[in-house]
Write a protein that binds this DNA or RNA. Structure first.
Lengths: 210, 210
DNA sequence: GTCTATATACAGATAGAC
DNA sequence: GTCTATCTGTATATAGAC
């Protein structure tokens, strides 16, 4: 299944925008299979025919919807934004922004649906991966490369370490949160968690040699 | 949706076993919505009526199938199994077993489906979480508690650190692998990756104070 | 271009024969 | 208990009116 652009390229088509907005609601609420084109049309206050004028199939509408959603949350920050802060403070800010995004209700629902449909929509999974994990990883990698140049960290492969850092931030809590079993923590609790994680990340857990 | 036991409690019912085996194949291959009871019946070489004698609905069959699958992969190891090894070697062995499990084709497919259906089947998500992440986390936590008692690691909360360690093992590669975009690495490459991750985990990444 | 109404297909669940 | 055949609902996609 190719990712197809809507038939009309006009991004100022107001019907198209309403359809995409409705589709986002419906797909994020019900998932791919349980969503119906009928409901999308009703929510967009249009008829199904109108929807099918813009998108040739349910699959195409789904792909366009998720891709649009992924691109909406583009890059989080530039590497230079945090250069003036002490290392642990910079990592805390980066981590806070990152978790705000990945633990937002929309991102969580999108992740669940993309995972569930990854076999059927590999191109959608690819876009989610590229715009989410990879792009963010690159931004953080640039920060880590600069941190290494400034002598703040001592690692062989700062890009690798940066990507691992992102995953470490999500940590164990993400296992329950991504499955919808636990609520994302409020900001204060989340920052306490982040400090703990970042502390171990920076200093390691091994006992100092006796 | 409650998780219902099959109507017949007899675990030696051969038809029941064939139905569960067929259901596992069909659900893991197609996901919940795209799977059909017809196909399950055909694969089990039984009629749909027979399937409905054992399970009252498609939902019940799905829940029973995933739960059975989760419970099949129970605990990975006992904490004591690795006590005799040097710390980094023990962590390498633990990590290898863990990644063998979570990056197996069956576990990856199960994870995708459970994520996708988490909103509709929270009890299934709960079982997946408990038998997967939590149970494994507890086993590793016992190892870390012992490691702390033996003075090998210096952390406040060894159970917390253990759970974070598990997530760190999956690391960035898991982002692409869980979406089906990258293949799990072969054993040698995986071990090289693990050594890198475990090294940073133990020693931290911060530059030593000048 | 947009709508109502419909063709077509498929899947979950069951009735009734044996 | 098991099977064949079927009922019923629903969803994608489209034909035809305006």
């Amino acid at each position: 299944m190719r990712i197809e652009a809507p038939r009309t390229a006009d991004s100022h088509d107001p019907k198209l925008q309403k359809i995409l907005a409705a589709a986002k609601e419906v797909f994020l609420e019900h998932g791919y299979a349980a969503a119906s084109m009928d409901l999308v049309a009703r929510r967009a206050k249009a008829s199904k025919t109108t929807v099918y004028t813009r998108f040739p199939s349910k699959e195409a509408l789904f792909a366009a919807t998720i891709v649009t959603e992924c691109e909406r949350h583009g890059m989080l920050f530039r590497a230079e934004d945090f250069d003036h802060l002490p290392l642990d403070e910079a990592l805390l800010r980066i981590g806070g922004r990152f978790l705000d995004l990945v633990w937002s209700p929309e991102a969580l629902r999108t992740h669940r649906i993309v995972m569930g449909e990854a076999a059927r929509f590999p191109e959608v999974a690819r876009v989610f991966y590229d715009t989410g994990f990879v792009q963010t990883g690159e931004a953080v990698a640039r920060f880590f490369v600069r941190a290494k140049e400034r002598g703040l960290i001592a690692v062989d492969d700062p890009a690798f370490t940066a990507r691992q850092f992102l995953v470490t931030l999500k940590g164990f809590p993400d296992c329950g949160i991504s499955l919808g079993l636990c609520e994302p923590p409020p900001a204060a609790e989340r920052d306490a968690y982040l400090r703990k994680v970042i502390g171990e990340f920076l200093r390691g857990v091994a006992a100092p040699p006796a």
